[in-house]
Simulated scan of single mutants.
Amino acid sequence: MQTRCPYCGEVVKVTNTEAFVCPVCGSHVGVSAGTTVLMRTGVVQDTMVGAKLGAYRVKRLLGCGGMGKIYLAEHEPTEREVALKILSDELSEKEHFVERVLQEARAAARLLHPNIVAVFEAGKANDHYFIAMEYVDGKALSQVIFERGRLQEEEALRIIRQVASALAYAHRQNVVHRDIKPANILLTRDGVAKIADMGIAKRLDAPGVTMPGTVMGTPYYMAPEQATDSSSVDHRADIYSLGATLYHAVTGTVPFDGATAPEVLAKLQVQPLNFPKGVRISPQVKRLISRMMEKDVKKRLQTAEEVIAEVDAILGGGKAAAQHRSVGFWIAVAVAAV
Rank of each mutant, 00 (worst) to 15 (best):
L62I: 08
G199Y: 00
L38Q: 01
R100L: 12
I70A: 14
V335P: 10
L72G: 04
R325D: 14
R40D: 12
V338R: 11
R236N: 12
I145D: 01
L273C: 05
I281V: 13
R80C: 10
A164V: 06
V82T: 03
E154V: 14
V192Y: 07
V175N: 03
V31N: 00
G63A: 08
A322C: 06
V29K: 00
Q143R: 15
A321R: 06
V279L: 08
V11M: 13
R280T: 15
A108N: 11
L315C: 04
S282T: 14
G243H: 07
Y129A: 06
G30H: 01
I281C: 13
T3M: 06
L61A: 03
V29T: 00
D89M: 15
F146P: 00
G34K: 03
E153Q: 07
E155P: 08
E104K: 09
Q226I: 09
A122L: 02
K194Y: 10
G34M: 05
K13H: 15
R150G: 05
G258H: 09
H128Q: 12
N115A: 05
L187A: 09
P283S: 02
D46F: 00
A304Y: 05
D296P: 07
A19M: 13
R110S: 14
V31A: 01
R291E: 11
L167G: 07
G50N: 03
K69F: 06
D296N: 12
P262H: 04
R287M: 13
D312T: 02
A132H: 04
G318E: 03
V24I: 15
E99N: 15
A259V: 12
V297M: 11
G208S: 11
E147L: 04
R60H: 09
G68M: 07
Y240L: 02
V44S: 13
G9W: 04
I145R: 05
G316M: 04
M216S: 14
R158Y: 03
E134Y: 05
G328V: 12
M67R: 03
V254R: 10
P262N: 03
E95P: 01
A309L: 13
P255W: 05
G54M: 08
R291A: 09
V101W: 13
E310S: 11
G50W: 08
V44F: 12
E76V: 05
G316W: 03
T228W: 14
G213F: 07
L141D: 11
K59Y: 12
V175H: 02
E18M: 10
I159K: 01
G317Y: 01
S142W: 09
I86Q: 11
V163Y: 07
Q173E: 14
F275E: 04
R80Y: 11
E294G: 04
D312N: 11
Q143D: 14
L38A: 05
V279Q: 07
V176F: 04
A140N: 15
